[in-house]
Design a protein around this nucleic acid. Structure first.
Lengths: 333, 333
DNA sequence: GGGCTGTCTGGGAGCGTTCACAGACTGAAA
DNA sequence: TTTCAGTCTGTGAACGCTCCCAGACAGCCC
């Protein structure tokens, strides 16, 4: 690899000093138009690219943020929604020339690595994904005082870690209301894990609408996986065979619920209406296609990034952002 | 953020010089056991973490690799297989304390950014994902002489960019053979884009088995998306209404084909057998569940990473790795 | 003219490492 | 005893950048 030109080479080519080149690079004040032009030309001629390491060494800024996926290894990415978020984050950060490092935090070893990375000063900010309640990582990050935001609230840390999220609770209300309006009488629900915001708030929204009708018998818990949706549905059917609707807190679990219902000979939506949540890609492939709640995932991701950049740029504290959901009617309800 | 301890602080705490600490850090030869112990203790006491920027500045190594996703923005991640690859790559790299930066290369601006990043020396290696034939990025990387490997062959550059991949061709043969054995007479195929290895080789495998029976009338092209699967299936049905099987080069497109078939009143697998490829997560959620070809994705990802690390560590040229696929029989064929 | 403010430039110092080299010490061979 | 190879250690010099300070110069006001 041929030796790359340094700021010295550019300075020499432009007939100015390092200082002036540096000023142009960081568009500082007080550079004469002539010098500015000469430096620009020299940069183009030499093909100069600043060495971020050298810069970081003195500025203590890295120009990169790290996205931390706090999920057991097997489950990372199982949720297709990750993809949208990552893609959006990369794009928005890229526009600002900030690069994205992705790290896993599924076990203690991983977490330790993340902490070491952050403590080593290798990232300007942290973007938390699916961080569970009580994750020790959060306290660590907090004590390091590094800018951090979450995509979706971190339970118990809502006032500490800013976040952007979809309005889970209102989304659940939308679906439940719709089912009520469609004349369903016995509406059950399959929730997500109760240590996740989606698990808690979608159940709350469900209960908001149903009030005392939301009896414990009509509530089952899953862990977002398709398999858990299957078994939760089976338990519901056994306990309440005459249910005529079920609001499932994720599309993937809803896909599981559908296959259990089919196996049990229930027709959807004839006998049982099924509502999902997410409007992820599986929603369209199920049979029948899922009526679901669309989360503005790309917007959530964008807002998350925006918050993080604001924090990194040293703006004061930022406020959480909550974005509206929308009911998408297909065939399952 | 409190000032982080430097190698000086450690040296002072251990009562040795910077040099000795550095030697311990990089476990060089010639450090006395006593000094070694003292340094280790001092590191623990001070909570010292090496500053990678300073290190990179002198070693010209960064301890990170960049994964480049060469896909138009809308389509990035549409294929659920990405997830497995990314997850696996992060883990394996993490074990070696190498961090992963992800960049998009969907348009010229992106590509320019990637080149700038690599030319800036910010990555020790490049991991190419779904790079299309003739992508200018490849030539750029080649001329930069930076270690690069691809996950899946880069068409036309098979001898330049090492890669790990599933045996697409043999996988296609497995599926086609299976259909023949099941007594199907008129077997069609929906391919991927013909500028991707999966598009080309899965068609070749199909043709290997069918020989002259693989007439042009029985071949349609898609672009991996579900929608393209739907329309390709429609075209096939129109042209050859009496086909009794279709090998679709991806599960997602197969899902699309299934819905077209259903809409056309064809029973699967009664009237038409449908075979997919990938064994991705959608394969299980379709109705009926897809018979498909499982790609050893995690293994492919592991091998890709292994190749890259070997290259980065300065071993000589490495050979491509091709891993076997397996037929997964479900209900659609 | 003297002082002041504002613009512009150059260069020394320092960021936290590694590397190469010189030197000190050991023990064994000549 | 001298010589030499092998261990072990400390130190100066990079690496490529930004920051800061000093100084030159111009223009303005009193």
């Amino acid at each position: 690899m041929a030796k790359r030109p340094t700021i010295h080479d550019v300075a020499a080519a432009a007939g100015v000093s390092r200082g002036t080149v540096s000023r142009v690079l960081n568009d500082d004040r007080y550079v004469s138009p002539a010098a500015h032009a000469a430096v620009r030309r020299a940069i183009a001629e030499t093909g100069y690219i600043v060495n971020r390491n050298a810069r970081s060494l003195v500025t203590q800024r890295t120009g990169s943020v790290v996205m931390v996926l706090s999920e057991p290894h097997e489950k990372v990415f199982e949720d297709p929604n990750y993809s949208t978020t990552i893609r959006t984050a990369i794009r928005r950060l890229g526009e600002r020339d900030v690069s994205l490092v992705i790290m896993l935090a599924g076990d203690d070893g991983d977490r330790e690595r993340v902490v070491r990375y952050v403590r080593g000063g290798h990232a300007d900010g942290v973007l938390l994904m699916s961080t569970h309640a009580g994750d020790p990582l959060v306290d660590e990050l907090e004590s390091l005082r590094i800018p951090a935001v979450a995509c979706g609230a971190v339970i118990g840390k809502e006032n500490v870690i800013p976040y952007a999220a979809a309005d889970d609770r209102e989304g659940a209300r939308q679906m439940t209301r719709y089912m009520v309006e469609q004349g369903r009488r016995k509406i059950a629900t399959i929730t997500g894990p109760m240590d996740t915001p989606g698990g808690i708030q979608r159940l709350e929204g469900f209960a908001d609408v149903l009030g005392r009708k939301a009896s414990r018998k009509l509530i089952e818990h899953g862990d977002w996986t398709q398999l858990s949706g299957e078994s939760a549905m089976a338990r519901l059917l056994e306990r309440t065979p005459d249910l005529d609707a079920v609001f499932v807190a994720s599309d993937l679990m809803a896909a599981g619920a559908l296959s259990t219902l089919r196996a049990a000979g229930r027709r959807v939506p004839g006998d049982v209406a099924v509502g999902g949540f997410d409007d992820s890609s599986v929603a369209a492939t199920t049979h029948p296609p899922l009526t679901t709640i669309r989360q503005p995932l790309a917007d959530v991701a964008e807002e998350t990034v925006r918050l993080l950049l604001a924090l990194v740029d040293g703006g004061g504290p930022v406020d959480p952002v909550i974005l509206p959901t929308r009911l998408i009617v297909r065939e399952s309800a």
